[in-house]
Amino acid sequence: MASRKEVLVRRAARVRRQVKAVANGRPRLSVHRSSKNIYAQIIDDVAGNTIVAASTLDVDLRKKLKTGADKDAAAAVGKLVAERASKAGVKDVVFDRGAFIYHGRIKALADAAREAGLNF
């Protein structure tokens, strides 16, 4: 029987493979959630570099948030990454949820990013 970590790694690889198949050159909005923080970055897989990134550890967000581990924090990170992406000239992305279910904080981040102008 596979360990939990192996299952998560396999699921993340499966999701990333599907996302890259439908990307058509669009950058990828990758999300990572830990027990205390949430991180988002927009990655250009063709060039292999990160275009923009945001997390609850950013100085400007850290002061505004009560904690980095709730839906409000995820929404703030989604809005911030979308604003930074628009400044960098990125409008269309594909969403990479990694091994996480599209629910709760992941969904809050995605909805906030959509409302702030990202298309996916």
Rank of each mutant, 00 (worst) to 15 (best):
D70I: 05
A2V: 15
V46M: 14
P27E: 08
V93D: 06
K36P: 05
E83S: 10
A113S: 12
R97P: 03
L29R: 03
D111T: 11
A110I: 06
V94H: 09
I43Q: 13
D72G: 15
A21C: 01
R84M: 02
R28P: 09
K5N: 14
A85Q: 00
V22E: 11
D72I: 11
D58A: 02
L65H: 02
G48W: 12
A76K: 12
K36G: 03
A112Q: 03
A12Y: 11
D92S: 10
R97K: 00
S55E: 04
A2F: 13
G89C: 09
L80S: 01
K20S: 14
L61T: 02
A116K: 14
R17C: 12
T50A: 06
G68P: 03
R11A: 13
L61Y: 04
G78P: 04
A40D: 08
Q41Y: 10
A40R: 07
N49A: 14
H103T: 09
E83C: 07
T67I: 09
S35R: 12
R105K: 05
S30T: 10
K71L: 13
R97M: 00
D96H: 13
I42R: 00
K63C: 12
H103G: 09
D58M: 04
R17I: 10
V7W: 04
A82Q: 07
K66L: 11
A88N: 09
A69W: 02
A108T: 06
R14H: 08
K79V: 11
I42M: 01
K36E: 06
A85S: 00
V22C: 02
A13Q: 07
F95A: 02
K79Q: 13
A40S: 09
F95C: 01
I101T: 15
V94M: 09
V81F: 04
